[in-house]
Nucleic acid binder design. Structure first.
Lengths: 146, 146
DNA sequence: TATTGTTATACTCTATAACTATA
DNA sequence: TATAGTTATAGAGTATAACAATA
């Protein structure tokens, strides 16, 4: 690198660059599932919260109601998610058998992906991150919709 | 939060959420400058590397050559950046007087923004982050262009 | 041949406002 | 009135491929 970049001493910048590296690695790991990161996270939240609504998934993932629509839509088209009407305005979301298989596969891939980084960091530094990052998030928790 | 979300125990997910919180805070802090985050970072790199090329800026910030074009273009339109031909295919970028004022203002805002979070974390945790985050980045450094 | 800047284009995620049909 | 889902649209960042001019 021929140029200096004093942003390197900024926490926000370091966070963004580190996050980008992990996201790129995750994308590679998930590439042949043909699922976007936002779709995978949605799949996993539905997996562990059967009969949740898509607004609830959005709240858990900080994705706005309006932006959940195409995500759920695509997951249903692909036969990974099912939904049934609850009360005429809300739906209960569940995974199909295929969705469960896909979720299991995704989790295994995420495990490998995470392992690569936590091993690199070592237990102490990894735990320090798990203590610090929620502090940053709590500073101003992302309010979805509102 | 009514739903469980086991992604909370994932480093990549925590990084992404924490980064989003800081980015949102920074955007608020920079809002009335009418500069996007990518434009501000570009401005600051040019400030400390007068006569650099836009490809070099891109390398420092992990922004691809093609994506630097509209950034530099807008900064010049706004009278913040000047460039002069070097050798017929590359330019030397500098800040105008107005660009320097803007850069100083931006740095002051970023200082305030960063302070909010580093104070929240405390010196020990902040330093732990500055040690760990570059380790994550180094895992697979983002190759720009290539 | 390799490099700098450029154009065109597409994708992903995010944001807002407004609408419907319910409750 | 408030809520769940939806539509439409815009913005921001990122990605690829290809080209011209130049070195």
């Amino acid at each position: 690198m021929t140029l200096t970049n004093s942003l390197e001493s900024r926490l926000g910048y370091q966070l963004r660059r580190a996050s980008a590296v992990m996201m790129a690695d995750l994308s590679r790991e998930l590439a042949d599932l043909d699922l976007r990161p936002a779709e995978v996270t949605t799949l996993l939240v539905i997996a562990e919260n059967p009969d949740c609504s898509q607004t609830e998934v959005g709240q858990a993932l900080a994705i706005k109601r309006a932006n959940m629509v195409p995500i759920i839509s695509r997951l249903m088209e692909r036969g990974l998610v099912d939904r049934r009407r609850l009360d005429g305005r809300s739906h209960a979301l569940t995974l199909t058998d295929e969705g469960r298989k896909m979720a299991d596969d995704a989790v295994a891939r995420i495990d490998r992906h995470e392992m690569r980084f936590t091993e690199l960091l070592g237990r102490v530094d990894a735990q320090a991150l798990f203590r610090s990052l929620p502090v940053i998030r709590a500073a101003r928790e992302v309010e979805v919709d509102g």
